[in-house]
């Protein structure tokens, strides 16, 4: 089993015919993901990569039973694309787009609250359940099927963790890139909970970074509800206060959202916290034995 995406998912691509959408849709199909079509307003009725193109998400839901959408729409139009997915009845929307204005995400968050949709991202690498479905931009070949779940705010740092796991002989159940923006659809706690509830996940790697309170919230939840070992890392131990470190959400605002403060709470909540990201894989291996 896996969470969020599997071989049963009917995946569509919003922004299907653009260069990013085209490239990554091909990669997903090559991986074996069940991509059933795409949406590009104005190009409905045509085919692209041998799959149908629709004008609206609603049409894709009706005609090819789309339930998962991956969004490659440019920043200025991405918020609208997410809300269209929510309105059309998509169950899992994964927004890859980086650079969506925060004010647009305030609207999105408000719009999707109460609707039956789970948003992952934006500004994320996507979600992969190795061997079943790759819905995003991560390199498929570094993953292997197994029982470790990964939750992370960053792209390449997630690949690093996955690569170490694979080399330790630990495959992955589902890896969830939750995104590096200040407002994201699925929080660290929500992603950890999904994996904690998944019978086929035995351990969880949780990678956070400076800024915000998501990791602290997740750690406290784990202390109360955790049933599996969790290995954690927070990037940005050397980051200065008040400077944005690449990700829009990676900025130290006060005393609670530094790497040191988060790591302290995580340790207190029983998480195996590593100081160096070079030891994520081996620490998980030891935690399991």
């Amino acid at each position: 089993m896996s969470v969020l995406v599997s071989d049963k998912s009917n995946v569509i691509v919003q922004g299907f015919t653009g260069s990013e959408g085209t490239f990554h849709a091909s990669q997903m199909i090559e991986y074996g993901t069940n991509v059933v079509g795409g949406v590009t307003p104005g190009k409905g009725g045509s085919t692209h990569l041998n799959l149908p193109v629709f004008n609206t998400v609603k049409e894709a839901v009706e005609k090819v039973k789309a339930d998962v959408s991956v969004i490659f729409v440019p920043p200025a139009f991405a918020a609208d694309a997410i809300m269209e997915a929510a309105d059309a009845g998509i169950k899992v929307a994964i927004a890859i787009t980086e650079g969506i204005p925060t004010a647009d995400m305030v609207k999105v968050k408000n719009f999707i609250t109460g609707k039956d949709i789970r948003l992952v991202g934006p500004n994320c690498p996507g979600v992969i359940s190795p061997g079943l479905a790759k819905v995003g931009i991560m390199p498929g070949f570094i993953h292997s099927k197994g029982k470790i779940g990964v939750v992370s705010r960053s792209g390449t740092l997630t690949y690093e963790a996955v690569d170490q796991l694979t080399k330790e002989g630990l495959g992955q159940s589902t890896c969830i890139g939750i995104g590096g923006d200040p407002i994201i659809g699925t929080t660290t706690k929500e992603a950890v909970k999904l994996l904690m509830d998944d019978p086929d996940t035995d351990g969880i790697i949780m990678i956070g970074e400076i800024g915000g309170g998501m990791e602290t919230e997740a750690a406290r939840w784990i202390k109360e509800n955790g049933t599996k070992p969790v290995v954690g890392f927070i990037a940005g131990q050397t980051a200065p206060k008040g400077r944005r470190m690449g990700h829009a959400g990676a900025i130290i605002g006060g005393t609670d959202d530094t790497a040191a403060a988060k790591m302290k709470v995580m340790k207190e909540c029983g998480i195996h916290v590593v100081e160096s990201p070079a030891t994520l894989g081996v620490t998980m291996k030891n935690a399991l034995s």
Binding site: T156, E160, T238, P240, R243, G246, A250, A259, S276
Partner: peptide, 28 residues
């Protein structure tokens, strides 16, 4: 995406999270 700091080891990385993690490794 560049932020100037005052240390002695420069770094160049792809991805913001890995870049922060690389800074941490330099320190360690």
């Amino acid at each position: 995406n560049f932020v100037k700091l005052d240390g002695n080891v420069g770094c160049m990385v792809n991805g913001a999270g890995l870049a922060m993690a690389t800074m941490d490794i330099i320190k360690l």
